[in-house]
Amino acid sequence: MYEGIVQDLIDELGRLPGVGPKSAQRIAFHLLAAEPSDVLRLAEILREVKAKVRFCRICGNVAESEECRVCLDTRRDLTVICVVEEPKDVVAVERTREFRGRYHVLGGAISPIEGIGPDDLRVKELMTRLADGTVTELILATDPNLEGEATATYLARLVKPMGLTVSRLASGLPVGGDLEYADEITLGRAFEGRRSLEV
């Protein structure tokens, strides 16, 4: 145990995800040894982030104003919504430069074992967005794991009466991998989703 405020800093750092007691101690001593201006800059950014960043009132993405950068962009296609679990998934899809529609961030996936049901996610907000008839296509880009699949199944069932085009991201073999290491489920999905080659 260190004295007073140093131990408090180690304890606070240790509460961050993925930071154990040893890492917390290492970061704390790095901060103590660093230039005061660097540490103050970090402190200022932490304060500013907490004060300024909020969730977009339309899509639930992180934003610095009432609406996020994507929702404010008038060049985006208003007829397509891509549903993702977390704001970091928006960044992942944006990196592809393939999607020009807007997003809807659910805030997680349905996980009954953790006590998370549809009412704990931003499902009602999604239904409200779909109600005015502007959106004609919904892309379900929840994680390709069991909870993500179940969430996509639930949403597809919910929006079915609205007559929208509902699609799910394809799953299959990762680019750059070896076929022999693919598991049966992934390889099976790749076979299901195979496409003809136009040459």
């Binding site: 069991l146 179940a150 199944t153 069932r157 598991d183 489920i185």
Partner: peptide, 23 residues
């Protein structure tokens, strides 16, 4: 894998929630 029940269970929301309660 011996049996991958996940695919057919996650493809039906009722089965998924019932199966999770079993787990």
């Amino acid at each position: 894998s011996l049996d991958a029940y996940g695919g057919s269970i996650a493809g039906d929301y009722g089965r998924y929630t019932a199966g999770t309660a079993m787990l």
